[in-house]
C-alpha cells in the first residue's frame, strides 16, 4: 500500500495485482465460521485499492502455485512457506501481466531485511532474476539502499524521492503512512498466508505423509482450513464441524466423502476422509458421538452415509475424552 502511494505521489499510474493461491487467509475463515460472522468482512486488497484510487486485478494462480508449494527450489521457511520461490513466482506472474498489458515496471512493498528468508539484501536480486523482471523490479521503500533500477536510471521515477527503509522495525513505515493520512493501515506482517500457520501446515504435512506423496487439490487445502481434524488411524481421518457455519460448509462435501452425524442428539457433521473398514465405522461413529450434545449419554444413534450414498444407523457409546489420544488431533 505504501509503496504504491509513494509512486502515486510521483504522478505514476499504478494498478494493483493480487494473486489468489488458495492459501490466502482472506475471506474463507470468515465465510465459514459463524463466530466471525459479525466482523466486517472486507477483501483487504480491494479495500487498499479503493483507498488509493487504483484498479486492482485479482488473479487466480491456484493451479500454477502448486509447483511452488510442492517443489520449492529454495526450500521452506519455518513452516511450509516457500517464501523465496513464492516471491519469484508472483513477480514473474506480475511481469507477464505487465508485458501483456503494456506497463513499464513492477513495484513491490518489500523492505530490505524485513523478512528472514525472502527480503534479505542477498535474496532480493534472486527474486528479480528468477522472475525475469531484472531491473524492471523496483522496491520503492528500500530503493535508495539498492542499485538503481531501469525506471530510476531512465528518469521515469525520481530516486531521490524513494526511501531507504531497512530491517524489521516498522515504525518508519507507520510514520510515513501517518504522514500520508493513512490511519487504517492494513499491512499485517505475514498474517495473510496459511503456509506460515503452524496448525495448518501440520495438517498439510499429515496429508502428504499419509497420501505417500506431496500432492494436493483445491478441495484438500480448503478442507484443511475447516473443522477439527483427527486421525485415529493412518488410513483415515475425520473432519468435525465446530459450529453451524462449518456444518454448512462441510455439507457441500457430503457426496465426496463418507459422512456421519447423530440422529438422536444434536451434533456436528463429520466427514471421513480415507477408506473405512467396519471396525473403523464404529470408531468414527463413537468419535462423532463424542463431539455432539450426547457425549454424556449411554448411547447415541449415528447415521453413516458412504460415498456410494448408502446410509446405515449405528447405536454407539460415545468415546470418552480420555480415550482420545492427544496425537489423534492434527
Amino acid at each position: 500500500m505504501l509503496a504504491a502511494k509513494v509512486m502515486l505521489e510521483q504522478g505514476i499510474h499504478v494498478e494493483g495485482i493480487n494473486f489468489y493461491t488458495g492459501f490466502c487467509v482472506e475471506g474463507h475463515t470468515h465465510a465459514i465460521r459463524r463466530e466471525h460472522r459479525d466482523k466486517p468482512k472486507r477483501n483487504n486488497a480491494l479495500w487498499v485499492a479503493e483507498q488509493l484510487g487504483i484498479k486492482l486485478h485479482i488473479v487466480d494462480v491456484i493451479e500454477e502455485y502448486k509447483d511452488v508449494v510442492i517443489n520449492p527450489k529454495h526450500g521452506y521457511g519455518s513452516y511450509l512457506n516457500p517464501c523465496l520461490d513464492c516471491k519469484g513466482f508472483m513477480v514473474r506472474k506480475a511481469r507477464e501481466w505487465m508485458e501483456q498489458h503494456g506497463f513499464d515496471f513492477i513495484i513491490t512493498g518489500e523492505v530490505v531485511g524485513q523478512r528472514p528468508m525472502s527480503q534479505r539484501r542477498d535474496t532480493m536480486p534472486v527474486v528479480a532474476r528468477e522472475s525475469g523482471a531484472f531491473d524492471r523490479l523496483l522496491r520503492p521503500l528500500s530503493a535508495r539502499l539498492l542499485p538503481p533500477t531501469l525506471p530510476e536510471r531512465e528518469g521515469w521515477v525520481d530516486r531521490e524521492k524513494l526511501l531507504n527503509f531497512s530491517g524489521r522495525n516498522r515504525k518508519p513505515q507507520m510514520a510515513l503512512a501517518a504522514a500520508y493520512g493513512m490511519h487504517d493501515y492494513a499491512q499485517p506482517a505475514g498474517g495473510c498466508c496459511f503456509l506460515v500457520n503452524p496448525h495448518y501446515t501440520h495438517k498439510l504435512a499429515d496429508l502428504w505423509q499419509t497420501r505417500g506423496e506431496k500432492r494436493y487439490d483445491f478441495d484438500d487445502i480448503m478442507l484443511l482450513k475447516v473443522g477439527r481434524h483427527l486421525r485415529p488411524r493412518r488410513h483415515f481421518k475425520l473432519i468435525v464441524a465446530r459450529d453451524e457455519g462449518e456444518n454448512q460448509f462441510l455439507h457441500g462435501y457430503r457426496r465426496q466423502f463418507t459422512h456421519l452425524y447423530a440422529t438422536s442428539h444434536v451434533g456436528p457433521l463429520v466427514l471421513a476422509v480415507g477408506t473405512l473398514a467396519d471396525e473403523d465405522m464404529v470408531l468414527a461413529a463413537r468419535l462423532t458421538a463424542r463431539f455432539g450434545k450426547g457425549r454424556e449419554a449411554a448411547q447415541v444413534r449415528i447415521a453413516i452415509t458412504t460415498q456410494a450414498g448408502e446410509t446405515c444407523e449405528l447405536d454407539v457409546e460415545p468415546l470418552g475424552a480420555d480415550e482420545i489420544p492427544s496425537d489423534w488431533y492434527l
Binding site: 475471506g27 470468515h30 465465510a31 460472522r37 466486517p40 468482512k41 472486507r42 477483501n43 480491494l46 479495500w47 485499492a49 479503493e50 487504483i54 484498479k55 486492482l56 485479482i58
Partner: peptide
C-alpha cells in the same frame, strides 16, 4: 452463496 461477495463485488466494481 458467500456473503463476502456482497462486499467484494461492489468494491471491485467501484475500483474498475
Amino acid at each position: 452463496t458467500d456473503r463476502g461477495a456482497l462486499h467484494d463485488i461492489p468494491a471491485w466494481c467501484r475500483v474498475h
